[in-house]
Design a protein around this nucleic acid. Structure first.
Length: 431
RNA sequence: GGAGAGAUGGCUGAGUGGCCGAAAGCGCGCCCCUGCUAAGGGUGUAUAGGCUUAAACCUAUCGAGGGUUCGAAUCCCUCUCUCUCCGCCA
């Protein structure tokens, strides 16, 4: 959520920053376009109501005194009856205007950070660096590799739940579990994160705090008849761990990692990546979350991204890091780096991690604040990044580790997590 | 799912219609006294919004929402959450 004070005082600057996301974001009929009028209306109504309330409070006190002294207060009573009715009217109007204003505010995306490059499509994203040597020989798609080995069962997934669900068997299931362990251990033991285990179902307020709602309801699974949604990412419960709290600045940054399943309806991506397990309705992910100060947000982003990269490097997976351009950055983010892993079957890099700084955007929405010694509370900055999406990591391991004989060579760091075996030659793990 | 109890400031905990943004204690900040790792005294200590150069001032907030009233932490209604007991259960 944008800052109201800034909205009033620096309208033009904010307008410029928002316009970089696209002209439609600042169109007259957009939430941004409507917000200004609603704000003025709301403030006028409130000011008028407050003036009358002050009057009422003053006279009510007088009535109390008069009655206490046995004096007649009927004139005041009559006058205040009238004032009270008017106050009620004004309050009701002000409340409606305030609600309308707040609703629009929740639909306005985060103004981009000044360092974000301009662009008109994802093709304008900027490659920052590459790591590793991509293999260029012909490698089968992971769905063929996995089916041949008997470790990925797409039919079973479709039978049980529908398209975009996969059943992992034997070595694949163990690999999924091993990756989860390996990633969490690395972040806890090497990178110093505090691990948390959180609900995969959250309520509407929590979803609103991180920005998934109200705008992206269609992307979420909602539980019928309840105020409950399946989380699309651990970002939601982990960041909201601090909702409506005031943290001591000395305790920042708070850094958490968490494993959760993630659920996404993929409403807008019909027909894309329908084969294989690149794009699933349910997938596993280890997520990193930072709660930090506004000043530290950008340096923390570099650090957090580095922690995600460390996983790819340890797994010996070639990847590149790209900085998203102005039109490709998500609603709540102010700046984003994507990590893309090399998929030999497609001969291209595919997103496996997205690391973003949200500035104070989520902090304001979720009421996460911190206080410097003797200072006023201010909205905390939040960051998060996948480290990594486990399903896609499994895909990358299958394809990058694929051998001519159909077996899969496994990265050395995973051996201890897989009972010591070094390769997959069937749906059972072999030494 | 059934029955009961409760929700007040960083914490504990008073407060059943006005003098309550809220006693008292604890904790914490600053000052003083004491000159030694005891204690004492004073003072301050919520959040948001409005108006302001600033201070002052005004408004709102005692789980949430609605109602009664000139006036509600206090009365009424609805909801949420927590705790205890019973039932069920991985």
């Amino acid at each position: 959520m944008i800052d109201r004070q800034e909205f009033r005082r620096s309208f033009d600057e904010m307008n410029a920053a928002l316009a970089r996301r696209g002209d439609d974001v600042v169109a007259p009929d957009s939430p941004w376009g409507k917000a200004r009028t609603l704000d003025l209306t709301q403030r006028e109504l409130k000011a008028e109501a407050e003036t009358l309330q002050a009057e009422r409070n003053r006279v009510s006190k007088l009535i109390g005194q008069k009655k206490g002294a046995g004096e007649d207060a009927s004139a005041e009573l009559a006058a205040m009856g009238k004032v009270s009715r008017r106050v009620k009217e004004l309050e009701s109007l002000a409340k409606d205007a305030e609600a309308a204003f707040s609703d629009e505010l929740l639909e306005i995306p985060n103004p981009l950070h000044a360092s974000v490059p301009d662009g008109s499509s994802e093709d304008d994203n900027i490659e920052i660096r590459r790591w590793g040597t991509p293999r260029t020989d012909t490698v089968p798609a992971h769905w063929d590799i996995g089916t041949d080995l008997g470790i990925l069962d797409f039919e079973a997934g479709a039978t049980l739940a529908g398209s975009r669900f996969t059943v992992l068997k034997g070595a694949a299931a163990r690999l999924e579990r091993g990756l989860m362990q390996f990633m969490l251990n690395t972040h806890v033991d090497t990178h110093g994160y505090e691990e948390v285990w959180v609900p995969a179902i959250v309520n509407r307020k929590t979803m609103t705090g991180t920005g998934q709602l109200p705008k992206f309801e269609d992307d979420l699974y909602k539980l019928e008849g309840e105020d409950a949604y399946l989380i699309p990412t651990a970002e939601v419960p982990v960041t909201n761990l601090y909702q409506d709290q005031i943290l001591d600045a000395a305790t920042l940054p708070r850094r958490h990692c968490a494993y959760t399943p993630c659920f996404r309806r993929e409403a807008g991506s019909a027909g894309r990546d329908v084969r294989g397990m690149i794009r699933q309705h349910q997938f596993d992910k280890v997520e990193l979350v930072h709660i930090t100060t506004a000043e530290r947000a950008l340096t923390d982003l570099e650090e957090l991204t580095g922690h995600a990269e460390a996983i790819l490097q340890a797994l010996e997976l070639p990847y590149r890091m790209v900085e998203l351009c102005s039109v490709d950055i998500g609603f709540s983010a102010q700046k984003t780096y994507d990590l893309e892993v090399w998929l030999p079957s497609q001969q291209c890099y595919r997103e496996i991690s997205s690391c973003s700084s949200f500035g104070q955007f989520q902090g304001r929405r979720a009421g996460i604040r911190y206080r410097e010694e003797g200072g006023k509370p201010q909205a905390a900055a939040t960051l998060n990044g996948s480290a990594l999406a486990i399903g896609r990591t499994l895909v990358a391991i299958l394809e990058n580790g694929w051998q001519e004989d159909g077996s899969i060579k496994l990265p050395a760091v995973l051996h201890p997590y897989l009972g010591g075996i070094k390769s997959i030659v069937s749906n059972t793990l072999q030494a």
